[in-house]
Design a protein around this nucleic acid. Structure first.
Lengths: 195, 195
DNA sequence: TTGTTTGATATACGGCGTGTATGTGAAATA
DNA sequence: TATTTCACATACACGCCGTATATCAAACAA
């Protein structure tokens, strides 16, 4: 019987879920591990055994959200007309996803501050990998100028995510979201091979 | 005589200088206020009296660095051929400045995580204000497409700063910095009115 | 079935760090 | 010179993290 592994998996999931909520609501620094674990009927013992330390738990949470975002971006990108429209659609999807307070606080603010650059994250940042892949396809087809794929992916996601932070911090997000998207499209078009 | 105000100013400067070093070397969370203040011959009493709390001190440090960056960007932008070249030069300047570990750790990582979006920072983020102003001039002269100035400023700086984080985290910064700059120029050119 | 081992989680402890309340002494003022 | 102010120091309380140790059920062996 594998009851041990089964309950362990359940506990890990419970902890990640609780952490996701706590980190989103209070921020990484203010989130208490005692509270967090007690919320799901456990103690810090389980946490430190499974994740090493507080940062390890954040890494697990970031990884989970990042994968969800990449999956969603992929789905949205694939149902676009062509690869170029797909890239734009993915970028816009990131902007909209980053409006979610959970994504913003955990992935965009606390994540980089606590874990460092996304390129050194646990599962190597799925969102960035996805964008890089899309850019590579566009490079092969010579749709975009011959720039470095990694560089293009970083700048595109950087612009998108920063735009989202701006939109979210504004007084009237609904009104300026279109402006952010429009500007994003304009800047992205600077990568096109033909004018 | 104004000896009171004078020494108070000195102490504030000492604290900000010490904090700048400590935050840069250890990060905001790991920096001890006891250590920090003792380094300049003071105690936490002076700190809490002058800055309210730990965040207040970070805000002062961020403000100082931000102003220095904006000043430098202005100087570099002004000695460019025209306004458009100026915008590009400023963007590249931001990328290079963000390679400084002090700027990176304090302004790009801990700053947003602890203080929130730059638009709500103490002196309202001088760098962003500077870029927005440059964009506005280009809009007046119809050099760039009629996009929202604030949006353009945010996306440009977002792309630049994210590029810097990538370059800095890489194994060989000197080698990929040109790639980042090249890609930045390409994306920025997407804002041009004429192709 | 029963004794033994393993290991996932709980408990207990030490140390540090922040924020606040209170004290103090020099500078400003009258 | 006496008094007041206030910038800073001191002292205290509380919470939190990480680790070392204990426990107890599940897995295993005989």
């Amino acid at each position: 019987m594998a009851k041990r592994l089964e309950t362990m998996e359940e506990n890990r999931n419970k902890l990640v879920a609780a952490a996701r909520k706590a980190f989103a609501e209070k921020g990484f620094a203010a989130a208490s591990m005692d509270e967090l674990t007690a919320d799901v009927g456990l103690t810090r013992g389980a946490l430190y055994h499974n994740f090493g330390d507080k940062r390890g738990l954040l890494a697990a949470v970031v990884d989970q959200i990042d994968n969800e975002m990449a999956l969603r971006a992929k789905a949205i990108g694939e149902q676009a007309g062509d690869d170029w429209q797909g890239l734009l659609a993915e970028g816009e999807a990131y902007i909209e996803m980053a409006l979610d307070p959970e994504v913003q606080r955990i992935v965009l603010l606390d994540g980089p501050a606590v874990l460092g650059d996304p390129s050194k994250w646990p599962s190597q940042n799925s969102c960035l990998a996805r964008t890089r892949q899309t850019v590579l396809r566009l490079l092969e087809n010579e749709v975009v100028k011959p720039v470095d794929a990694e560089a293009a992916a970083r700048l595109l996601s950087g612009a998108a995510l920063n735009a989202a932070l701006w939109v979210a911090a504004s007084d009237n997000p609904a009104e300026i979201l279109p402006k952010a998207v429009e500007t994003f499209r304009a800047m992205a078009s600077g990568l096109l091979a033909k004018a």
